[in-house]
Amino acid sequence: MATSVKLDDDLRNRVQHLAEVRQRSSHWIMREAIRDYVEREEKREAFKDDALQAWKAYQENGLHLTLEEADEWLAKLEAGVDAEMPKCHD
């Protein structure tokens, strides 16, 4: 699928310079930039959807962890301890 993108002179020159430095085509630089952007935004949307689902579940059942419980568990994981997530409670 061919798509055209209009760039202002400054951005076009920056892309061309980066392409030269990286020994790539301007097309490759733009395609990679768009791919990275789309992947990042898809992850952001998935995170937001997960958060909304978690909020909905909490509103329905009241189950949760306190900040202290979550911090303690995450500290163990960060230290390399294979700790199970604490049980949610109301």
Rank of each mutant, 00 (worst) to 15 (best):
G62S: 10
E72V: 04
C88R: 07
W28D: 15
K48V: 06
R24M: 14
R40G: 03
S26F: 04
E32T: 09
Q59N: 14
G80M: 01
Y58M: 07
W55F: 10
E20Q: 15
K56D: 14
V5A: 10
I34F: 06
M1T: 11
N13T: 13
E45M: 12
H89L: 06
P86W: 02
I29C: 04
L65D: 01
E68D: 09
S4R: 11
E39A: 15
K6T: 11
A79K: 00
W55V: 13
L77H: 00
D8C: 07
I29E: 09
A54P: 02
L67I: 13
S26A: 15
D71A: 08
L65W: 08
R31M: 12
D9P: 05
R14K: 10
V21M: 06
Q16S: 15
W28T: 15
V38C: 05
D9A: 12
T66I: 05
L63I: 07
D8G: 08
E42N: 07
E20W: 06
A46Q: 14
D50E: 13
V81P: 00
Y37C: 03
E39N: 11
A75I: 02
M85F: 02
Q53R: 14
G62M: 05
T3F: 10
L67H: 07
I34E: 02
I34K: 03
A83D: 03
E68L: 04
L63E: 15
L11V: 14
I34L: 12
E42A: 13
R40K: 13
R12K: 14
M85E: 05
E20N: 14
L77I: 06
D90G: 09
D10W: 07
H17R: 12
K6Y: 08
L11W: 05
R40Y: 06
R31Y: 08
A70P: 01
F47A: 12
H64Q: 10
L18S: 05
D9Q: 11
H27Q: 14
A19N: 08
A79V: 00
K76P: 01
A19I: 12
M30F: 05
K6S: 12
G62K: 08
E39W: 06
Q53H: 09
D90W: 07
N13V: 06
M85H: 01
K76M: 02
E68S: 09
D50Q: 11
D71V: 05
L65V: 05
E42D: 09
E69T: 03
Y58Q: 08
E60W: 03
R40M: 06
L52F: 09
S4P: 00
I29T: 10
H64V: 11
D49A: 15
R35F: 07
E41K: 15
E78G: 00
E72Q: 05
T66P: 01
E20H: 13
K76H: 02
V81W: 01
R22Q: 11
V81T: 00
E78Q: 07
A19D: 08
E78S: 03
D49L: 13
E68W: 02
D50F: 07
E84Y: 01
R14E: 14
H27S: 13
E84H: 03
